[in-house]
Design a protein around this nucleic acid. Structure first.
Lengths: 345, 345
DNA sequence: CTGAAAGCGCTAACAG
DNA sequence: CTGTTAGCGCTTTCAG
């Protein structure tokens, strides 16, 4: 191979080109372009001018290799299609705004093996941080995370042991508290509709919390449906119809998701049921996009954006943990009773 | 500085470590790990074993620099909060699945300056492709795109000149066709509600197409509202109320977005209006999540996922353009009349 | 304040 | 089938 940077080796502009065009050493050009170290105003001007003229764009690959610093943050989520995940991503993005960090997104499609692959792929870029959904991962994935050599934030769940840091709400607690809320309003015959397709530990934890709260009052779930596939209004309608048909005396319908809940709500209103009175209903997530339904569906705000923001703060080093402190940041979801529960007793 | 790779220079496992542990040359180790070239089964096994034992993760930064190949695809969209963009991203992600390409996402928040910054940032990683929303960019951005040295796909719009390739629907045509559809069903007093916050050229183009269709029949818009901020049910309700109050004889309401349309739909139903009869309504996008509303809102399916898929195919080199062929891939949106338009005359 | 030298960890190219 | 050599474009380090 010919000498270093032969001539226009790859059609790519290099520091050397700027150096030659400006008559300043590569090193000083580099300093100017990174705003690093002291450079005389005159030299700086010359360099900037040359860079602009040439249309030079630095090569981060080379920079990253040389400096061992990469401004990428790996974000690994189950899916882009389920609204909740883009919302977390939006929070991350928002908080990273001030920094020079960029998110790189990978989807696992709820498949642990796929998660392993994506994680491996991402880690091979030596990112400055990893944000990954959930606390449940394969052995191999946990090992990779543990050896990532960068902050690792497991998000959207705090019911378990994080590899490094966890940020999110306690889904168990969310279920538990909604259970208490339901009971406090005098409902006793409760039907629950939840997704399984999420592969989702979080929905399961909510259910466990719910059952615990009910159990403490001697109540058991009167009926339940597990569904897979997309959560939408139609699914909520269909399930609600099925459940109300087969179990006659239900007085509360709890959905694992606001969208199915909203579908159920519309259905019940059409049926002329006394929603918010004899029949209580609640969903989960707090999707603001639903505001404007005929009734405001009771729900638990699951702090998605906030979770993303907090995760990003940690990656960006804007959150310092005291040594020995709990490395789980539990966000507190709020229950909004909306119009679909009767007043507390 | 000490000799090359002194000892555990950065606490990072290198090819050399695997080489030493397996007694095979670095080069061959590299071949095995990349599944490239012929390596004897025995050697391969030794290497794989050593790599696994050590927990070696290749450094893509170094690989990319050496090979001048980067498996990253830059995806630049206005926002993560507006459902349409994550949906395009989902399509990209899906199609990239089979390849070794990974999307890197950046948000511009509808700000051309921000777009420039994000683009610069992304390009400095020398990605294998760029997918960017829209055809309208600053001079500087267009220059960067033109010199990106990789496929550049401008998505979600084909009404204009792409730098390289464009994929998406024609919004002008979408508006035009909906206009014709509306007229064909005998509606004449049309109110239009559209967002401005998108900074959005696309909504504007739809409106222009709509006005053209109406104009050809000698009809002009009876009323219109431009709003900014989030599109949700609540906004749709509010605007609909306002418009129906101030303009009495409207017979059709056209929304720039399904969500506001759905809000309007719920409102009109509550008001006891003859939706789908004397009063027609339509939205835009074809959000499947809305299926299950009391009525199916008429809409134009805007092919978001398909756009992402097609863009990814181009980046991945799975779509070959004939030389001289039009480098705009116009996807054909379909109008779904739903339940909110009366039959054609 | 500026520059020269020496790699970062990997792969292309060529030679066995 | 395997190994050697020479960098990729940048930044670190150390000397002026």
């Amino acid at each position: 191979m010919a000498g270093r940077n032969g001539d226009e080796r790859r059609g790519q502009l290099t520091l050397r080109d700027v150096s030659e065009a400006s008559g300043v050493s590569e090193m000083t050009v580099s300093r100017v372009l990174r705003n690093q170290g002291d450079v005389s105003a005159k030299t700086r001007e010359k360099v900037l001018e040359a860079a602009r003229m040439l249309g030079y764009v630095p090569n981060k690959i080379a920079g990253a290799l040389a400096s061992n610093r990469v401004n990428l943050v790996a974000v690994i989520i189950p899916s882009m299609s389920n609204m909740v995940f883009p919302e977390v991503l939006a929070g991350i993005n928002e908080q990273l705004e001030g920094t020079d960090l960029q998110p790189v997104v990978g989807a696992t499609y709820y498949d642990p093996e796929k998660e392993e692959k994506v994680l491996y792929e991402m880690l091979s870029w030596r990112p400055s941080g990893v944000v990954i959904a959930g606390l449940e991962h394969s052995e191999a994935s946990r090992a990779m995370l543990a050896n990532a050599g960068c902050p690792v934030v497991e998000v959207m769940d705090v019911d378990g042991e994080p590899v490094d840091v966890a940020v999110g709400i306690s889904h168990w607690r969310a279920g538990y508290e909604m259970g208490q809320e339901i009971l406090s309003r005098g409902y006793r015959r409760i039907g629950f509709m939840t997704t399984t397709s999420e592969g989702d530990h979080r929905a399961r934890k909510r259910m466990e919390g719910l059952e615990r709260a009910l159990g403490e009052a001697g109540v058991t779930l009167a009926d339940q449906i597990f569904y897979s596939g997309n959560s939408g209004f139609a699914k909520g309608r269909e399930m609600t119809n099925e459940m109300l048909t087969r179990t006659k005396d239900l007085d509360f319908l709890y959905y694992s998701n606001d969208l199915t809940g909203a579908g159920g709500l519309l259905y019940c209103l059409e049926q002329g049921l006394d929603v918010g009175g004899d029949l209580g209903m609640a969903g989960f997530n707090g999707f603001t996009l639903l505001e404007g339904l005929p009734r405001v569906l009771a729900t638990t705000e699951s702090c998605r954006r906030e979770t993303g923001i907090e995760a990003a703060r940690i990656i960006a080093g804007q959150h310092v943990f005291e040594p020995g402190a709990d490395r789980r940041i539990e966000l507190k979801p709020t229950i909004r009773a909306g119009d679909t529960m009767r007043p507390k007793l």
